[in-house]
């Protein structure tokens, strides 16, 4: 690692690095062959999804795949998000400044104007997910953006939010999803096999809860730690 060529000023030629470079060039060649051999003209799973679209309870194919056909996958991914927040919260406390910073008047006005609009738009996206592009993940991302906007403008009440409300919000998506999945076991006998007459309502319920929880997850990850009153008896950061 410390070996360096004598007159080369630009870069050290490390034998290990050279080996890595060779291996990566080799891998690139293999992957290019894979891409050249891929059949892009086949319809993949598009026809299959279109055939069972009517059974899914929603009109948008992406939402149908996300929450109905591959619902198990999405359930686990929502759990992954929850685990990420648990990991971040258990590591550090959110680094809010000790002394509150007064945000400028223009910033405050913009945040006051934008944040409610973004929250409204996020739920509109969730609602739109049943027939057009949109859904829990897009709505959650916009909701998270609204929360981040409030976080960066250091609104003074934000750091006093009780961790109980945050926990309820973070858990709402996974819990509702899991509850519906268990309800499906009770009613139908199979996990995530939605009863046909309520499927649209159930999907919208799951999407709304997941959007809230995804938005809060993103905001909590941005805040970078647990809130002030969470585990306050624990080790100081």
């Amino acid at each position: 690692m410390t070996a360096r060529s004598t007159q080369n000023k630009r870069k050290r030629f490390d034998p290990v690095l050279l080996l890595v470079l060779l291996l990566i060039v080799f891998l690139t060649g293999l992957l290019v062959q894979v891409i050249l051999a891929t059949d892009y003209l086949g319809s993949g799973l598009g026809d299959d999804v279109a055939r069972f679209q009517d059974l899914s309870g929603v009109e948008s194919p992406v939402t149908a795949v996300l929450l109905n056909f591959r619902g198990y996958d999405t359930l686990l991914e929502v759990m992954v998000l929850l685990m990420a927040v648990v990991g971040v919260w258990s590591l550090t406390r959110a680094p809010f400044p000790k002394k509150p910073i007064e945000p400028g008047p223009i910033q405050l006005a913009v945040v006051r104007l934008l944040a409610p609009l973004m929250v409204l738009f996020s739920f509109y996206l969730v609602w739109q997910g049943s027939h057009l592009a949109g859904g829990a993940f897009q709505g959650g991302a916009v909701l998270g953006g609204a929360c981040v906007l409030m976080l960066v403008s250091e609104l003074p009440w934000l750091k006093n939010i009780s961790s109980r409300f945050l926990r309820i919000g973070l858990l709402s998506g996974p819990l509702v999803f899991l509850g519906v999945a268990i309800l499906c076991i009770v009613l139908q006998g199979t996990l995530l096999d939605y009863p046909q007459e309520w499927v649209g309502t159930l999907l919208l319920l799951i999407e709304t809860a997941c959007a809230v929880s995804i938005g809060l997850t993103l905001a909590c990850l941005f805040a970078g730690g647990r809130p002030k009153d969470d585990l306050s008896g624990g080790r100081k950061r």
Binding site: G44, D47, V49, A50, L218
Partner: peptide, 29 residues
């Protein structure tokens, strides 16, 4: 050219959000 394949779209959609959370956890670590 026929029906689009929505399965990769759904995978990317969830993948983006998961990758953001992975990045955040990695940064904290």
């Amino acid at each position: 050219a026929g029906e689009i394949d929505p399965v990769p779209h759904a995978m990317v959609l969830t993948g983006i959000v998961v990758s953001v959370s992975v990045t955040a956890l990695a940064l904290i670590l």
